[in-house]
Design a binder for these strands. Structure first.
Length: 852
DNA sequence: GCGGATCAC
DNA sequence: TATGGTGATCCGC
């Protein structure tokens, strides 16, 4: 459907939901102020509005508690989180897949456009499809008055009294949709339809084949007699800025729809095709992705007289954003390069991304995050404030990553019916309504031959408060009677609970889930087999080919496409998670099992795993010394990296000559960093300064940027200048802080804007070595790893402090205890040795993350 | 497994 | 007069 997702730097939430703040007031439209006022006048005082306010309060409450959590985050936690996040970031970066060409096709104002096409009377008039209660979509003319999808018709009428509201004709839309899909299938037989008017295609294969196609195979004919006009990027942009211009020449063409061509215009007789007349009306489309998509849109328009917009990008997330960019009747491509992706992402408001809704946007905005670049900059903080699922997802967005395989429609998980009505408070009526809904549901269920075990009743009272009540039974249910038997009891409980007051309902719904039919089992089995096959193939041909295999050969339950949302977890859990060794591999896999945004990531991982298991010798780049290690086994490579991390003291173990060269100059410093930490004063900075972060300005400083925090923590005993002037001081901790500070200042580093930073060598602020890379992400990771040692050391010292120096403040004591416990857990779980004599295990674990 | 919330279309 | 319906996921219990 139309993009109703509007940007909002606006205060009034309700207006936002109405989708108004983006109105570019046309000459005959309304300006934003007026629109907002009309909506508010129509809304204020209603029960609906009351509920909206209530919900808003809840969200604000959530934000407030998030901010409190933020205020308690120590710089140490933040730094540690930064390590973990950047490790994942690097992992993702290494597996970035730019080899697919994904297209998102979106019909312009679909329902409204169909209605206009079929009723010339509506041409040039503001129309909307829907009812007085709710609009599904509006045409662009109506949008100038602020009339949007998801707006009640009666409010739309106030905004635009001339508005014509057309009742929806879903059968018709389905038929048109089918026509469009027939075209799409020619470019990707496995395309994924999101809805009647939206679909994703993977045209990678089509593009390959198309390269060898003769012109004739790419020639299309226009029977309308209109001079064929192929979009040029510039023209598109111009046309779009002109609100007054007709949106589609064909859509607004005078010729009645009957005269529009039906079927594929390509299907012409040879004679017809070769006649000069016809050739004049023909176009040849090129072989590039852009040309393919122009061709698709051209054919859609020829066939349906409707226009579509499209986005082309290396993954679905980006393609979707792109299709919105030059809407209506336009297209936009992000070329398949990392730089292009990052340039595009940089200033992209996060709200544009599918999955970031109103609430998430508001929460992130409270953290000062509006654009994707800001999302990237705050990645460490986000990993502490949000659930794993969420921050992983955020990180993907921030790196411009998304799914490259279009999962086929999976098994249905639930089926439901619900209805809104004018108030019903009579209990008998409510039961009989419930029964009707069950009958309907049973009917739908039967059509798909499904049986379920969980029945959920949904109730909305006249104040718009929603309640759901569910019950799972042992036997499978499919008939109306069976379902009603369960639903009735659920309803009864609610009725009784409210008694003696009646339930004043405005909506009732019945849902059934927990399906357990044979089909589902069959699919699952096939899924497992397919999975194994895919794994085997991946072994022989690792990398992006896995996507294709997955797509065509198996669909796992977890592959089912779905939308996602994000909730924050309990702070304690999150923090303790981060206090543990950053074990990305464990963490990731759990998240990947269920969360859609990471399907792509999981695939990459799978292919990594298989290539690892195959134990092939490969070429790796050491994240510490950045030397390429050719033809080594993973194990050998890990040893090398360990050696790099450990410094020269253990470097004899390493058989990689390049390493010793690289690190020879830094050897002394690294030794210092590991072993010559003054016992207390440098290390118990946590007690003094970090506590102060909890104070009044803590909320500000911690979240605003890492800079503030690390400056704070460094502040007590060591000024930044002191250390930047003397970076090779013997105390590692201020040094580490300094490094973090520098990194934070580079936060403004958009690691991805340039693939290559020219003319300037990157020198690690920790080991002081010039790095053989120009990639800022890689560089950051290197610094992180260097820093890691400092942090390990901090932990050790904290532990020591907690034993030797009991604190008077119970708060501090608690904290230290926590720190001690943390260290202990680390020891147990990761064999993180606290003995300096034994070889530290931690780097190994740290690095395993890269390759597992 | 349940219930509330979020999100998309 | 009047603010939808369907499906999915996530999170905290």
């Amino acid at each position: 459907m139309d993009n109703t997702k509007e940007k909002n730097n606006c205060k009034d939430d309700l207006l936002l939901r109405m989708g108004l703040n983006d109105n570019k007031a046309g000459m005959e439209g309304l300006d934003k102020e007026k629109i907002n006022k009309i909506i508010m006048d129509a809304t204020k005082g209603s029960r609906f509005y009351g509920n909206e306010l209530k919900k808003e309060k809840q969200v604000n409450q959530r934000i407030e508690s998030m901010m409190q959590q933020k205020a308690q985050i120590t710089s140490q936690q933040l730094r540690k989180a930064q390590l973990q996040v950047d490790r994942l970031a690097m992992d993702l970066e290494r597996n970035r897949n730019l080899n697919n060409t994904i297209v998102h096709v979106d019909m312009d104002a679909f329902y409204a456009a169909v209605e206009m096409r079929d009723n010339p009377e509506l041409k040039d008039k503001p129309i909307a499809v829907g009812s007085m209660s709710m609009l599904s979509t509006s045409n662009y003319h109506a949008r100038r008055f602020g009339v949007r999808a998801a707006m009640p018709g009666f409010i739309a009428k106030r905004l635009c009294p001339q508005l014509i509201i057309v009742p929806p004709n879903f059968d018709k839309y389905r038929a048109v949709s089918k026509e469009v899909k027939e075209i799409l299938a020619e470019y990707d037989p496995n395309f994924m339809a999101v809805s009647l008017d939206e679909a994703y295609l993977n045209i990678t294969q089509h593009l390959e084949e198309r390269q060898s196609w003769p012109e004739d195979k790419r020639r299309y004919f226009s029977k309308t007699g209109n001079p064929i006009k192929i979009d040029k990027p510039g023209e598109e942009a111009n046309r779009l800025s002109e609100d007054e211009q007709p949106i589609s020449p064909l859509l607004f063409e005078d010729s009645p729809p009957d005269l529009q061509p039906h079927g594929n215009p390509f299907q012409l007789n040879p004679e017809e095709r070769n006649s000069p007349q016809t050739l004049q009306n023909s176009v040849v489309f090129g072989t590039s992705a852009e040309e393919v998509v122009k061709e698709i849109r051209f054919r859609i328009e020829q066939k349906t007289t409707l226009t579509a917009s499209a986005g082309i990008a290396p993954n679905t997330m980006l393609a979707k954003v792109c299709s919105d960019k030059n809407k209506p009747n336009g297209q936009y491509q992000i070329p398949p390069s990392r730089k292009a992706v990052m340039d595009f992402i940089k200033d992209l408001p996060i709200r544009k991304v599918s999955g970031i809704g109103k609430v998430t946007e508001k929460m992130l905005m409270a953290l000062g995050i509006v654009t994707c670049m800001e999302l990237y900059q705050q990645r460490a903080l986000l990993s502490l404030l949000f659930s794993e699922t969420s921050w992983h997802y955020f990180l993907h967005i921030a790196l411009g990553l998304g799914s490259t395989n279009l999962a086929r429609d999976g098994e249905r998980k639930s089926m439901s019916v619900e209805r809104t009505f004018s108030e019903i408070s009579n209990t008998e009526e409510q039961y009989s309504l419930c029964q009707e809904l069950c009958t309907e549901l049973a009917h739908d269920l039967q059509k798909e031959g499904l049986k379920g075990r969980t029945v959920t009743v949904k109730l909305k009272n006249v104040d718009f408060e929603v309640k759901t009540r569910a019950s799972t039974v042992l036997s499978t249910l499919s008939t109306a009677e069976e379902i009603f038997a369960v639903a009735k009891e659920l309803l009864r409980t609610e009725v009784n609970a409210a008694s003696p007051h009646p339930l004043r309902l405005r909506l009732m719904g019945v849902r059934i889930s927990t399906f357990s039919n044979k089909d589902a089992k069959k699919h699952q089995q096939r899924g497992i087999i397919g999975f194994l096959q895919a794994g085997q193939r991946a072994l022989s041909s690792p990398g992006c080919s896995v996507d294709r295999i997955d797509k065509t050969e198996f669909v796992k339950p977890s592959e089912i496409p779905h939308k996602k949302s994000f909730f924050d977890k309990k702070r304690s859990e999150r923090l303790s998670n981060h206090q543990d060794t950053p074990r990305c591999e464990v963490v990731n896999q759990r998240a990947l099992q269920t969360s859609q945004p990471f399907r792509a990531f999981r695939k990459m991982r799978e292919s990594l795993e298989t290539s690892e298991n195959s134990n092939n010798c490969q070429t790796f780049t050491c994240p510490v010394c950045f030397r390429e290690q050719e033809g080594v086994s993973l194990e050998a490579f890990n040893e090398h990296v360990d050696a790099c991390l450990d410094g020269p003291s253990t470097s004899e173990d390493s058989k990689m000559p390049s390493y010793s060269q690289a690190s020879s100059t830094a050897a002394g410093q690294k030794e210092d960093a590991s072993h010559s930490i003054p016992p207390c004063e440098h290390c118990d900075y946590e007690d003094g300064e970090v506590e102060s972060v909890d104070g009044a300005d803590g909320a500000e400083t911690v979240g605003q940027s890492l800079t503030a925090v690390s400056a704070d923590t460094t502040g007590s005993n060591h000024s930044k200048e002191e250390h930047s002037d003397a970076p090779d001081q013997s105390c590692p901790i201020p040094l580490a802080n300094e490094a973090v500070r520098m990194l934070s200042e580079q936060e403004s580093i958009w690691p991805c804007t340039d693939d290559v930073v020219t003319g300037q060598a990157l020198v690690c602020p920790v080991c002081n070595l010039e790095q053989k890379t120009s990639d800022l992400t890689l560089f950051n990771v290197h610094v992180d790893i260097c820093l890691n040692k400092g942090i390990i050391q901090e932990l050790r010292n904290n532990e020591a402090n907690s034993v030797s120096q009991p604190k008077e403040s119970s708060r501090s004591a608690g904290r230290l205890q926590k720190a001690a416990g943390r260290t202990k857990r680390l020891g147990q779980r990761t064999k993180w040795s606290t003995s300096k004599k034994t070889k530290p295990q931690s780097p190994r674990h740290t690095l395993d993350v890269f390759f597992k």
